[in-house]
Design a protein around this nucleic acid. Structure first.
Length: 514
RNA sequence: CGGGGAGUGGCGCAGCCAGGUAGCGCACCUGUUUUGGGUACAGGGGGUCGGAGGUUCGAAUCCUCUCUCCCCGACCA
């Protein structure tokens, strides 16, 4: 192995948590805000979010779901209506109790005791209850169903321990809420949303995921069924990248979401909700990042190609810039993966060599450098970020293609990078799921000996409930493990439950998780 | 929220124990140099040392309170 001088100081294998934070700083994605658990998302990080938003939003609308916007504040009483929902969220809510500040007489400000709210308002941790109110107003007849709405919003959950993008007090997300005439239709929608997430996360973000149902103990508060997509990070931990819930008639009963069926009888709706958040960006970092920083999959890269002119403060700069502009225009006219190619000619003052490393850390998929000699030869110097090192020499693996040929190759090149990132992640995940484990001792042994970053294990179980399930959860906890999900479409169970010894009924994935 | 660690110019850190009025590397600015690749040299700008209060002639250094971040745990759709 040649000795490569990487663009970052921390390596994944040395300290994954520190590496993760370093990527966020080095790629200029986000920074601390000074407000507990809240971050400032900077242009490069927000640009990635905007790309995700656009691609996800297109998929949401394709399914006939319409966007709305509901209030940030929810009356406290809304949360008292659905018992398990209360239990799930009560401990982590931000509450607004006053509407005015007054001087405290010592140069500071305090909430005015005179301006105390009759009923406190909760800053939404999720919007089931307030959207449920609207649904109750909007559904009268079976003709109003299904009612399918989505909103892009910020939500607040007062988490004890936060991490940039993965778990912040305030985060950005989309939440879809639907109401249906019966269980079957609501379940169909639950699965349709889950499948939409799988497709978006795998195809757009290049994150391979396993879709499946969450066990009883991991259900969303108030849900009858919770489904998730789970991604494996490079440290072998699992990240829940999206969830879709079948809420039964729980919220419908709490909010009075009813309709008259064809026979004229009042019926409760069956509702669903589903969400994905800025947390997915954390997943992109921990899946595609490397020791040189971030690698952004082309579909969600704000800029897919960055052109760096080699300027020298001399008269020939003008010609170099003109040549770069031609290359830029040529690339901008290309279409890749169904969209116009997003290209930036970075004219920021500074040395091209220094700027190159900035873009490497940000993870622009393709970086081009153009100097006078390239111009003379009608060429460009190109680096593809996903394969930027020559492993023989330890030097940058740049190529010097002819200009017009290169421009025409861009669409295929971006698609290849997209596919390569996905394939790399999928192969790594598949290589790190251990199957065929039938004894609990093997599980503990695996996590003791599998090194610093163990992966997942698939086991069969008897799907215990209640106290028996609690016992299983406790047993897993001893190894810091959790049940991720019951993979959709996996082979039927054939053996015994690894926990109870009873006949197994299904397969589950267990893993350490974020 | 419990245990541990930490907050000093944009980033990474030293100084703190043994108080005396702020320093290093990178980055940044200027100049020279170099010019197919993260050039080198010289000069320079920027910090009321997280915040508040206290002890003291004097506080980045000592004491109290508080905010924020990181790690472990508890918690977590």
């Amino acid at each position: 192995m040649p000795n490569i001088r990487h663009a970052m100081n921390v390596k994944r294998e040395d300290d994954f948590a520190k590496w993760y934070q370093e990527v966020i700083t080095a790629a200029d994605m986000a920074e601390e805000s000074g407000v507990r658990g809240c971050m400032v998302i900077k242009p490069w990080g927000y640009g990635i979010w905007e790309r995700i938003q656009r691609l996800m939003d297109d998929r949401i609308k394709e399914a006939g779901v319409q966007n709305c916007y509901f209030p940030l504040f929810i009356p406290l009483a809304n949360f008292e209506r659905e018992a398990s929902h209360v239990d799930g969220f009560a401990k982590e809510m931000a509450v607004v109790t006053h509407h005015r500040l007054i001087a405290d007489g010592e140069g500071g400000l305090i909430p005015d005791p005179e301006a105390k709210l009759e009923e406190p308002l909760v800053v939404r941790p999720t919007s089931e209850t307030i959207i449920g109110d609207a649904m109750a107003r909007w559904t009268q007849s079976w003709r109003d169903l299904p009612l399918m709405i989505n909103q892009w919003a910020n939500v607040v959950r007062w988490e004890m321990r936060t991490r940039m993008f993965l778990r912040t007090s305030e985060f950005l997300w989309q939440e879809g809420h639907t109401a249906h005439a019966n269980k079957e239709e609501a379940l169909d929608e639950t699965h349709r949303a889950l499948e939409m997430y799988r497709a978006c996360v795998e195809e757009d973000m290049a994150l391979p995921v396993i879709a499946g149902e969450k066990p009883e103990n991991e259900r969303f508060p108030g849900a009858d069924e919770t489904w998730s997509i789970e991604a494996m990070m490079q440290d072998g931990k699992a990240l829940q990248a999206g969830t879709s819930h079948y809420l039964g008639t729980n919220f419908a009963k709490a909010a009075g979401i009813q309709y008259q069926d064809r026979e004229g009888t009042q019926q409760h709706c069956h509702t669903t909700s589903w969400g994905t958040s800025t947390r997915m960006i954390g997943g992109v970092i921990m899946t595609h990042g490397d020791d040189d920083g971030l690698r952004v999959p082309p579909r969600i890269a704000p800029y897919q190609v960055v052109i760096l002119p080699m300027l020298r403060d001399k008269p020939e700069d003008e010609a170099t810039l003109a040549y770069c502009e031609e290359v830029r225009a040529g690339i901008a006219a290309q279409f890749s993966m169904g969209e116009k190619v997003r290209v930036l000619l970075d004219k920021t003052p500074g040395k091209a060599t220094a700027k190159r490393w900035d873009w490497v850390r940000k993870g622009a998929p393709v970086i081009i450098e153009v100097g006078p000699r390239d111009m003379e030869n009608g060429k460009v110097a190109a680096i593809r970020r996903d394969k930027m090192w020559n492993m023989e020499t330890g030097k940058l693996a740049n190529s010097f293609p002819e200009r017009s040929e290169f421009i025409e190759s861009i669409p295929a090149l971006l698609e290849d990078i997209q596919n390569n990132l996905f394939a790399e992640a999928r192969d790594r995940r598949d290589a790190n799921i251990k199957r065929g484990v039938t004894e609990w001792s093997e599980v503990s042994e695996f996590y003791k000996s599998a090194g610093k970053y163990p992966g997942w294990i698939e086991v069969e179980w008897s799907k215990p409930t209640g106290d028996a399930l609690a016992k299983v959860v406790e047993q897993l906890k001893q190894e810091k493990l959790t049940i991720r999900n019951v993979p959709r479409g996996s082979a039927p169970a054939t053996g015994k439950c690894i926990f109870t010894g009873d006949a197994a009924v299904e397969r589950i994935l267990i893993a350490r998780a974020y």
